[in-house]
Design a protein around this nucleic acid. Structure first.
Length: 375
DNA sequence: ATAGGGTTAG
């Protein structure tokens, strides 16, 4: 029999899950957070849920903050929360924070759990340390599963090592590992980065013929990218037209950007129009369209697009990046605005794992090492 | 009731 209290925890946690999945915008997360703080009793799943919610929304600071509270409350974390934190560390490229979570995983004896393995590979790779990523990959005791494999393939592809990416994919096929939809996106990306159009089509056919999978819009996106890089803009456009699934703005944007580089006004204009049909104020489409015109000397047309942006009140969102300055992660936007999400992650982490000296993977980070002290 | 890998680009 469940006590009233236990039922409470489960239903409150379900609500928190629901809120963090609504849009993963900050408002929904604030609601989730309000619910969480109002709980009378929390268990490890409720803590993992709120941490996962913020992490998936890209809010590393809040994720780590809740994690710190969780530990101070005496709740021992499981692989769930750690996997979420590794994921957000990778997405924001905060290597030191990711390393600390790795340290903790070792300390807690969770480092060989498959979700942790793949999250670690991804984290190190996204943080630029492909060497550590492949080290984790190699040290996977029971062999990498499809998720870890995909993380590794992606890592190689993103680091410009397409040959290794493709070799690894092939090797996994040879040992009888069944590829899934995501792993095909990875290998197609590798083909695309290395300009191997033919090989890309080989995998595109293979997934359909041998594995009975129908390509999703992401796979078509890779093929469009491949065709664009090969300069075959018309074929790329035809590929989009013939896609049997949703043609989102991502795939049109791929084509549009390629048109700037190749100065193809005609195809570019059509691509921009398709995006603008759905989203008339798309700043990406309008800015890129204006760039295509100016790159091919059509100043008048460029000016018309710029003017229409002004009259529609379209503003290009500034890009931003985070930089580590003296132990602080700060965010800077090109427009001078700072991004509120990623400030001060480091100061929160000091609460998390105080260490006597800097951690280095494979050295001080041993499970029973004295150098890792946990609050 | 919770978790890991996902294409675009100057």
């Amino acid at each position: 029999m469940h006590s009233m209290k236990e039922r409470d925890v489960v239903s409150w946690t379900s609500l928190i899950t629901a809120y963090s999945r609504i849009g993963q915008e900050e408002n929904a997360l604030v609601s989730a957070s309000v619910l969480f703080r109002g709980m009378r009793c929390r268990d490890v799943i409720s803590w993992s849920t709120i941490i996962g919610g913020y992490s998936q929304g890209g809010f590393a600071e809040e994720g780590f903050e809740y994690f710190s509270w969780m530990r101070r409350s005496g709740t021992k974390p499981t692989d769930f929360a750690l996997a979420s934190l590794l994921s957000v560390s990778g997405n924001l490229a905060v290597l030191e924070q990711g390393r600390q979570v790795h340290a903790l995983a070792l300390y807690l004896g969770l480092e060989q759990i498959p979700t942790i393995r793949s999250a670690l590979i991804n984290m190190y790779s996204k943080c630029g340390s492909i060497v550590e990523a492949s080290k984790v990959f190699e040290e996977t005791e029971r062999g990498a599963d499809i998720v870890a494999l995909t993380a590794m393939i992606n890592g190689y592809a993103e680091h410009g090592r397409s040959k290794e990416a493709i070799d690894l994919f092939e090797k996994s096929l040879n040992v009888g590992c069944r590829p899934d939809a995501v792993s095909f996106i990875s290998v197609l990306t590798a083909c695309s980065h290395s300009g191997q159009l033919g090989l890309g089509f080989h995998y595109f056919n293979l997934m359909q013929e041998k594995y009975n999978m129908s390509p999703a819009k992401e796979h078509y996106g890779c093929m469009v990218d491949l065709l664009c890089r090969a300069g075959r803009l018309c074929e790329a456009e035809r590929m989009i037209d013939e896609m049997p699934c949703e043609k989102d703005d991502v795939v049109w944007t791929t084509l549009l950007r390629a048109c700037t580089a190749k100065r193809d006004v005609e195809v570019g204009r059509r691509a921009a129009e398709r995006i603008l049909e759905v989203e008339p104020t798309s700043s990406t489409a309008l800015v890129t369209l204006a760039n295509i015109y100016s790159s091919s000397g059509k100043w008048k047309e460029a000016a018309i697009v710029r003017k229409s942006m002004k009259s529609k009140g379209v503003i290009k969102e500034p890009g931003w990046s985070s930089v580590l300055i003296k132990d602080r992660v700060s965010a800077f936007a090109s427009g001078g605005r700072s991004h509120p999400q990623s400030e001060d992650i480091y100061s929160v982490l000091e609460l998390l794992v105080p260490v006597a000296e800097p951690l280095r993977y494979g050295c001080e980070m041993k499970r029973d090492s004295e150098s890792i002290q946990i609050l």
